[in-house]
Amino acid sequence: MGAGARPPYTNPIPQGLILTGIVVAVSTTALALSLIIRIWKQCGTIEADELREMD
């Protein structure tokens, strides 16, 4: 986006960045949640203290 752009136009780059960032964050969260669910299924708890005792 050059310097000549007039005010009604918004800079598309930050929007692209934010969108990509959101995609990344969503996939990270999805992975995290799936891991949490699997841990819950296997250990019956997601309490850090209890998990540590299980080791």
């Binding site: 949490i36 819950w40 997601i46 309490e47 850090a48 203290d49």
Partner: peptide, 13 residues
């Protein structure tokens, strides 16, 4: 309870 436990795990982290 589940929600609270997740919070506590986060506290550990």
């Amino acid at each position: 309870l589940t929600r609270r436990q997740i919070q506590r795990y986060a506290r550990d982290m």
